[in-house]
Structures are given as structure tokens and as C-alpha cells.
């Protein structure tokens, strides 16, 4: 006897696997004697079971046919698929009916059907944009272009719109390959739309840190540095600017090295960033001769205008984190300070 019990067990296992779609009752009834039967077969002649009987799958198929296997509905893969499809459709219908009332319709599909013309329009636009991408190649916006021509693109859009509506009113009656072609085209457009959305999302994301959209019209966007002069025309160093809420005002960006703290955060540096680039005679010790006329102090101004110009208190203004504190001293004599941005 050349066939081992192991081989018989494996053969029976594969036969049973091939009959897996039958109910376990039927399958057991068909195969409960199979090991003994195969042992008889093996005892009768030489050769492996597969050589003598063919593959277990073929054996199972023949057995199924000969035994008139019940449960014919599950006999073939396509029939099983068909049954699964039917089950899935029934579940979809149930879901359809359940989702309808919250939308105010008998069924959700009724509501979706109303949206179909909207899809026809969107479909035409997507097709036009697809042609735009293919024909233009390079950059394009939200409007269709044909070979880069806006007029051609708009004409194309109108044409596609009419075609899409025409097609939409007839798609119900399409059968065979035109129907499949329509589905395939829809799939292409949906994928294209998703890709386009993702692309647009990416491009919008750049503006988050690339540039502030408000800055487009900001008159200070060309300010690189801020120079503060006291009423005597002396350059105030280590000045800090705050708005009415106590938030620091950041203007410009240092384009020279900070000798005091070369490794510090450049955005925390006080103004001016680069004192040596002051437009009006930096560090002029006395007199305001170089100041523009509008900044000349009024006659009633205090004789001690430099109180806020001393570097130390200005530097501490932000460190003490007094939210309501203003960098100006509390003394009534407010010095006239001119902020003179360099351009």
C-alpha cells in the first residue's frame, strides 16, 4: 500500500474544502465515508490518489454532480455572487428607506434623484477641466481653457454642458457597452475631481505660511526696520512697540547681525534692528536739526523728553509682562516721538 493515511486525510480535506459552499449537513453526508472509501481505492492499486482519481477539486465536482448535490443555488461561484448581490441590494433598499424621512422624502434615492441635473452640470465642468489639464498642460485656474484659450474653453464648456444634459436625459435607456462606457467615464471624472480637490487644497495650504493674504495691501509690508527718535532728534535704541492691547508690533526683519545676542531669536530684538542704518544721523547727541519739520516738538513740551528713550525700561517692558502697561512712562510730560520707517 503506497498511499498513506496522511495523504488520504489531505485528499479528503481538499475535497471537503471544494464542497465548502454546501451546508455542513450535506457535505458530511457526502464525505463521511470518503476516508474509508479512499483507503479501499488505495488498497486496490498502485499510484498516488491524485494519479488515480485526479485532483481533489475535480473529484469533488464529479461527486457533487453524481450525488445530485442539493443546494444547487450555491453550486457555482457566479450563482453565489449573484445571491450576494441580491442581498446587498436588499440592504441598500432598506437603508434608502430609512434615510429618506430625515431628509423629508420617502426614500433617500428620491432626494438624490433631484440632484441629478446638478451632477450633469458638474460633470460637464469636470470634463471641461479635464480637457483643460490635458490641452493646457501648464498652470490653469478654475475656468476651463482650451489650449490656453479662455474663450475656447468657455465654448467647450457650453458644448459639454449641452452634451451632458442630453446624455443625462437618455442614460436610463442606455444598455450594453454605452452604459459601461458612461460608468467608466464617470469614474474617471470622479477620480479627476478628487485629485483636483487635493491639489487645490495643497495650493491653498501654502498661503498659510507663505504669505499673509492681508499683507497684500499692507502699507508696512516694505518696512524692514524701525527707527525711533526722541524730540531731541536722538535715535532711541532698544525700543519696543506695542499696540493698544499690549501686543508687540513686529515690523520688518533684521538683516544685520545682532552684536549683543548673535544667537537670539531675531524676532525678539528691539528696534532698530540695525542702528547703523538709521536714516537721520544716528546717535546725534544734541539737537534736532535733521528731523523732519512735522516732528518738531511743541513749545510746551517738557524739557526732559528722553524718559522713554532709555534702553533699560523699554527692554523690561515686555519681560515684566504687564498686559496693560504701556512702554511710555506714567509722567504727564509725554515726549514727542517720531516713528520713521525706512523704506
Amino acid at each position: 500500500m503506497t498511499v498513506t493515511e496522511q495523504e488520504i486525510a489531505e485528499y479528503v480535506g481538499r475535497v471537503r474544502a471544494a464542497l465548502a459552499d454546501l451546508s455542513s449537513e450535506v457535505r458530511d453526508e457526502l464525505t463521511e465515508d470518503l476516508p474509508e472509501h479512499l483507503a479501499e481505492v488505495a488498497a486496490e492499486a498502485e499510484g498516488s490518489l491524485v494519479e488515480r482519481l485526479g485532483t481533489p477539486e475535480a473529484y469533488a465536482a464529479e461527486l457533487r454532480a453524481a450525488a445530485g448535490a442539493p443546494g444547487a443555488g450555491g453550486r457555482h461561484l457566479d450563482q453565489r455572487v449573484a445571491r450576494a448581490v441580491l442581498r446587498g441590494r436588499a440592504q441598500l433598499r432598506a437603508l434608502d428607506a430609512r434615510l429618506g424621512p430625515p431628509l423629508g422624502y420617502a426614500a433617500a434615492s428620491e432626494f438624490l434623484r433631484l440632484l441629478r441635473p446638478a451632477w450633469w452640470v458638474l460633470r460637464a465642468y469636470l470634463a471641461a477641466m479635464l480637457v483643460t489639464v490635458v490641452s493646457t498642460g501648464g498652470s490653469f485656474g478654475l475656468l476651463p481653457r482650451f489650449g490656453g484659450e479662455l474663450l475656447g474653453g468657455l465654448l467647450m464648456l457650453v458644448g459639454l454642458l449641452l452634451a451632458s444634459i442630453w446624455l443625462g436625459r437618455r442614460s436610463e435607456r442606455l444598455r450594453g457597452w454605452p452604459r459601461w462606457a458612461l460608468h467608466a467615464g464617470t469614474l474617471v471624472l470622479v477620480v479627476f475631481a478628487l485629485a483636483g480637490l487635493a491639489n487645490a487644497e495643497d495650493r491653498a495650504g501654502y498661503s498659510d505660511y507663505g504669505y499673509d493674504p492681508i499683507a497684500v495691501n499692507n502699507p508696512y509690508d516694505r518696512v524692514r526696520d524701525v527707527f525711533v527718535y526722541d524730540s531731541e532728534g536722538r535715535l532711541v535704541e532698544n525700543a519696543r512697540l506695542f499696540d493698544q492691547n499690549g501686543d508687540p508690533i513686529r515690523l520688518g526683519y533684521p538683516d544685520c547681525a545682532d552684536e549683543r545676542d548673535p544667537n537670539g531669536n531675531p524676532l525678539l530684538r528691539p528696534y532698530p534692528y540695525c542702528p547703523e542704518q538709521a536714516p537721520f544721523a544716528p546717535r546725534a547727541p544734541v539737537g534736532p536739526p535733521v528731523l523732519p519739520p512735522l516732528s518738531s516738538p511743541s513749545a510746551s513740551s517738557t524739557p526732559e523728553p528722553t524718559a522713554s528713550a532709555s534702553p533699560a525700561p523699554a527692554a523690561s517692558a515686555s519681560e515684566t509682562a504687564d498686559p496693560t502697561g504701556t512702554p511710555t512712562p506714567t509722567g504727564t510730560p509725554v515726549p514727542t516721538i517720531t516713528v520713521s520707517p525706512t523704506r
Binding site: 470518503l34 472509501h37 482519481l53 464529479e62 457533487r64 454532480a65 453524481a66 450525488a67
Partner: peptide, 23 residues
Amino acid sequence: LRRLREAGLEEVGDASVYGTLRR
């Protein structure tokens, strides 16, 4: 199976006979 083949039904398969017997 052997009797069937000896009787001239050469093409009958083992699985067919086994399945028929079961049925």
C-alpha cells in the same frame, strides 16, 4: 467501480460511483 468498468462503462469515475452510492 470495477464491475462497471468490466461491463464496458470504461469512462465512469470513482467519484461518480461513490457519489451515486451515497445518494
